[in-house]
Structure formats: C-alpha cells, structure tokens
C-alpha cells in the first residue's frame, strides 16, 4: 500500500464521521427547504422550489426577527469585546491574589445559557427583581424591564454581554500572555507612558486574538436563542424574537419543517458571509 493510500484509509473514519454528523444534516436541511413540508397538513412533503424563500422575504415576522438578531450582534459583539478586554487586562495584572479575578472570568463562562437567562429574568422582574429594588432605593421609578420593547432589549443585551465577555476575556488573556515583557521594558526605557505602550504594543499584538474572539462571538450572536427565550420568550408580542427563535417555533411547534429549514438556511448563509469577511481580514492581517 502506498503511503498516500494509507493516509486516505486512516483519514476515512474521521471523514465519514464528520460527513455524517456535519455534512449530512446541512445537505438535508437545504434539501428540505425546497419542500412544502408541514406535518400538520399531512405526513408527506411536495417540491416547491424556492417558494419558501420567497415567502420568507414577504414575511414581516422574518424581517422583524432578522432586525432583532442583527441588533443583538451589533450591540453585544462590541460590548462583549470591550468588557472582555478590560477583564483580560485586569486578569493580566500581577495581583498577588489571583483567584477572585479568575473566578469572575470563569463563572459566567461556565454557567449554561438558560440558567443565565433565568437568573437575569429574576433580576429584571418588575415586581420582585433586584434591579428595580436598586432603582427604587435610589429614588427612581419602577421599570417594566421585560415587557417594554426597548427595555427588554437592553436587559437581554446586558445579560448576553455579561455572559459572553468572559469567553472573550479568556481568549484575549491568552493573547496578552504571548506578548513578550521585554517590549514593555524597552518602551519604558524609551520613556513611553502606559497609555502609549497600550496603544502601540498591546493592541497591535493583540489584534489576531481579538479577531478570533470576534469571529466566535459574532457567529454565536447570530444564533442567539437561549437567553431571550428564557427571559422574554420573544415578547412582548414578537418584539425580542430572534431568527433562531423563529426557526424553532416554525419547525418544532408549528411542525412546518420546510419553511423552518428555509429560515435556518438563511441564518446559515448570514453567518457564512460574516465568517468569510472576517477570514479575509485575518489573512490580510497575517500578510
């Protein structure tokens, strides 16, 4: 057996597994999206070409969910990046007692998303929530956090940033620790201020790590589901419904697998486009 053939044989199990768990569902999803396939109308589907996609573009609920999803991306990705950077810089400081910062970094990251959603639902509850308690102790008015569209959006974005910035911080911390200390010492000798060394050394050398964190954060932000689902169920009305939530309602509750698949493909395309743009950026940065 030639070395090449051996390599193919050795790679085959992994390739098959990957094909089975990753490729097959995606192909199947795209295939289903071309069908009128709703179990409540009968167990069989019929081919309708691109009609599901045409329906999506005329569906106000799709556009509303898309708008909400994009808003969440635009708010929470920079938000998590900023908070995450601050956390990473804090964790990178030579404190003697490291565990409080490390715990603060790991805890939000380790908590399951739904738990976080439920915890913050209680925090923001208008009657029993701690947030309103603080506001009213400070002399403010009771706010209906979870069922005024703007406030619900703020509450959800705040929660997502709290939950995800620790993930960003972990990646950035790893990046920070690869920056050689000598660079800072040299900068100090040359009379650079801390601010200058942050802008001239830390930030440029951290860019690859920031880009990696941004890619992961953006893709997961497009798929936002758990936190708004636990906090508002998409309410009031559909005011905080994301695309992933609409996909779930369409397929799992309404049993409309054809249309649900089309919506999922659109979500997939959106993430793809963003990823490709980022990857281009990274390659550009490497050159």
């Amino acid at each position: 057996m030639s070395e090449r053939a051996l390599a193919i044989w050795l790679l085959l199990p992994a390739g098959l597994l990957l094909g089975f768990v990753a490729l097959y569902p995606v192909v199947r999803l795209i295939y289903t999206s071309f069908f009128q396939f709703q179990l409540t109308l009968g167990p069989e589907g019929s081919f309708i070409g691109l009609a599901n996609y045409a329906a999506a573009f005329e569906d106000p609920r799709f556009w509303n969910a898309l708008k909400n999803t994009v808003l969440i991306v635009l708010i929470t990705v920079p938000g998590a990046l900023l908070v995450g950077l601050l956390l990473a810089l804090l964790a990178n400081l030579p404190f003697r007692v490291k565990w409080p910062v490390r715990l603060g970094l790991l805890l939000p990251w380790a908590l399951p998303l739904v738990f976080v959603g439920l915890i913050f639902q209680w925090f923001f509850d208008s009657q029993y929530g701690v947030v309103n308690d603080w506001i009213m102790r400070l002399g403010g008015e009771r706010q209906f956090w979870l069922f005024k569209p703007d406030l619900a959006f703020i509450a959800i974005c705040f929660t997502i940033i709290w939950k995800t910035s620790s993930f960003v911080a972990l990646i950035l911390l790893a990046g920070l620790q690869t920056i050689p200390k000598e660079l800072y010492e040299a900068a100090q000798v040359d009379g650079a201020s801390r601010w200058q060394s942050f802008w001239r050394i830390t930030l440029p050398l951290l860019t690859p790590a920031i880009l990696v964190a941004m890619i992961f954060r953006t893709i997961t932000a497009f798929q936002t589901f758990d936190i708004p689902y636990a906090m508002t169920k998409g309410g009031p009305g559909n005011a905080t419904e994301t695309l992933a939530m609409y996909v779930r309602v369409t397929s799992i509750e309404n049993l409309n697998f054809g249309y649900g698949s089309a919506l999922a493909v659109l979500l997939f395309l959106l993430s793809m486009v963003i990823t490709v743009i980022y990857l281009r950026y990274i390659r550009g940065a490497d050159d």
Binding site: F147, K148, P149, G235, P236, G237, A239, E253, L255
Partner: peptide, 20 residues
Amino acid sequence: RYPEVADVMRKALNAVLARI
C-alpha cells in the same frame, strides 16, 4: 395547526397587556 392559532392569540393579548 393549533400551535399557530395559539401563538396568534397569546401574542396579541401579551402585546396589549404590555401596551405596545
């Protein structure tokens, strides 16, 4: 298609109670 029927009704009442 009851789940869709239900979704229409509960979202409407919820939106009215939230005054949106």
